[in-house]
Write a protein that binds this DNA or RNA. Structure first.
Lengths: 341, 341
DNA sequence: TGTGTTCTCGTAAACGTTTACGGAAAAACG
DNA sequence: CGTTTTTCCGTAAACGTTTACGAGAACACA
């Protein structure tokens, strides 16, 4: 049985109120008394029970992260998120906050799994990933008045919550710029068909850059597919069979790129030789693929840390003296040139 | 402000005790009363506050998973764990249990990060991964009398806790058997130098199979390295430069295999042609590497589910009428034959 | 009708904290 | 020395539940 504040008080012949104040660094407690309390706490190995504390303070000191598996390949497993989670957790830990992980129903972008957390008040705030352009989870949290932040932007909920996103638009532009500079004019774009917001952003950048270079946007070179290898595998040939074959492809998702490259291989087309390939979000898979895929790399761990900060800055209980702030940031990606383009 | 059980009771002109009993399915409440309570709860959108419940019941209804990052490459991110976590969470959710993720200090296999969880009673039990042969975290939890289960076996703590492991020993044997059947006699083994338990198990199986085939174990063909690409990259040449060059290598870790293959490539040695390569734990990287690496694949998502069950079976509060049981299981791996051997 | 049993519910304590309030003692001040 | 201020601490309520206990009403039974 763990020791409670009552044990500590009894042991010191002192009231629990004083003990609590001493431990929480309140001003109205004698310096010597505080010393005695701290020592006794160490000796009796006392730590405050979080349930009691939560109940009294109305805050659980834990943040929920909702990981939304995409439909499809179970084995793949979104390696993207581990470094992000590492950063998120590290930053939260510095504020003595715990991280709870809530998995969504695979393929279903619904708030159901969130409901329990929110309604039973198991967490103080939520971090959402894989945001869609129209996101029911954001609508739900907004309506419920529950604090949250998102990794990725969305059109839902307005600008009322902190969000940190990757600059997919710029990445799309830069990819086109790079390819054009290397002499390409017929550049295809392949992205997920789900209405994940980054798919739109990417395409915006892609179109914008093409126009800037005076290249007409050919709808036949733009294709949507299922957000996994199978999708890339299925959709890539469609683009390759357009009347005027592209000389370059930009994939908006690493898994789709891998599937796409498989399709290319079966058509006897070699990335890096017969066609240029660029991937928008780098993962370890891009590095080890043969040929190694040129890709845009995010700095996931720092993003995790930063989003934690941004979330906390929006919470009254954690914001500094300046008050709460809704921070929204968009981070650039770093191009990692490899062999595929 | 969320509604409490008091609001509900007041609304129904009934005592909170009765409300609680009705909601919790106790027998001593009139059927009609229960109906009214349930309806009102739905109407007022009432859910019990978990903090209050935790405090009263002395249980948080959340399980902590400690993810222990290996030292080294941040970007790599252990894709292994996402499917496992998915299964673990899914099974826990069926018992209305939450999952909390605790990250260890990268490279430090210490119980420090666990201390906070245990001492402040933020979770009811812990799931440990990346178990070492001698594991301080296990010692700590045992001594503290805190319930836990492990993914992977260890020599610490005896048989007092549930554990689920992959049969690395058998995988080591099978890998050797397969290679011998294909005519190989000089087979190298490369494993992490950390005292992760699976490294020992793998080597046991490797040695056992070699002896069974009447092949002498050559210490020059066994090498330990840092558990990441760099380690594999550094240690593989050492093995290849032994006086009687191996014709096959078994890697005990996917990251090390990738680094090793890079070293081989630089030596002009092509896996699948000049040397056979088998990897003990498959990840998506093995599949996409060129040549695709033959590997042993675990079923991670079912393992996550199963370990959750096993953990719960060991807890008095969740065990069935048969009482608590300490279950230990070792699961086989499935060989996925690809191009590298 | 009296007695025992069953059903149903209200009362109140308990879980472990934090904190508003007030009061006694000590210190400061004139 | 009397008064005011400050310092320090104890008291008790509150957070939202669950549950042991007991009591009244209804019922069964002889």
């Amino acid at each position: 049985m763990a020791s409670s504040i009552h044990d500590l008080a009894r042991h010191l012949n002192i009231s629990i109120g004083t003990v609590s104040r001493a431990l929480n660094g309140r001003a109205d407690v004698n310096a010597e008394t505080r010393q005695r309390v701290l020592e006794a706490a160490r000796k009796l190995n006392y730590s405050p029970n979080q349930s009691g504390r939560s109940l009294r303070q109305g805050a659980t000191r834990s943040i929920a992260f909702m990981l939304q598996p995409h439909p499809g390949d179970q084995q793949y497993g979104e390696p993207f998120f581990i470094p992000f989670l590492t950063g998120l957790q590290a930053q939260l830990a510095e504020h003595d906050l715990d991280l709870m992980v809530v998995m969504g129903e695979p393929g279903q972008y619904q708030p159901e799994r969130l409901r329990r957390v929110v309604e039973t008040r198991r967490a103080d705030a939520v971090v959402l990933a894989n945001t869609r352009r129209e996101d029911d989870r954001i609508d739900y949290l907004s309506k419920a008045g529950f604090p949250f932040a998102t990794l990725g932007r969305s059109q839902s909920g307005g600008d009322t919550y902190p969000s940190l996103d990757i600059d997919f638009e710029r990445a799309g532009e830069e990819a086109v710029d790079r390819l054009v500079a290397r002499g390409h004019r017929r550049i295809a774009a392949i992205r997920p068909s789900l209405d994940l917001n980054f798919g739109y952003l990417f395409l915006d950048g892609y179109r914008k850059a093409l126009r800037r270079h005076g290249i007409e946007v050919d709808p036949g070179l733009i294709a949507d597919g299922f957000i996994n290898e199978t999708g890339g595998y299925q959709v890539t040939p469609r683009v390759m069979l357009s009347k005027d074959r592209p000389t370059a492809i930009i994939f908006n998702n690493d898994a789709m790129a891998l599937g796409g490259c498989k399709a290319l291989a079966e058509m006897g087309i070699r990335p890096g030789h017969d066609i240029a390939v660029i991937v928008i979000v780098d993962t370890p898979l891009c590095r080890y693929f043969s040929p190694a895929l040129t890709a845009f790399r995010p700095s996931l761990e720092p993003m995790g840390r930063r989003l934690a900060e941004m979330l906390l800055a929006s919470l009254p209980a954690f914001a500094g003296p300046e008050g709460t702030r809704i921070i929204r940031e968009v981070w650039p990606l770093e191009l990692v040139a490899r062999e595929s383009d």
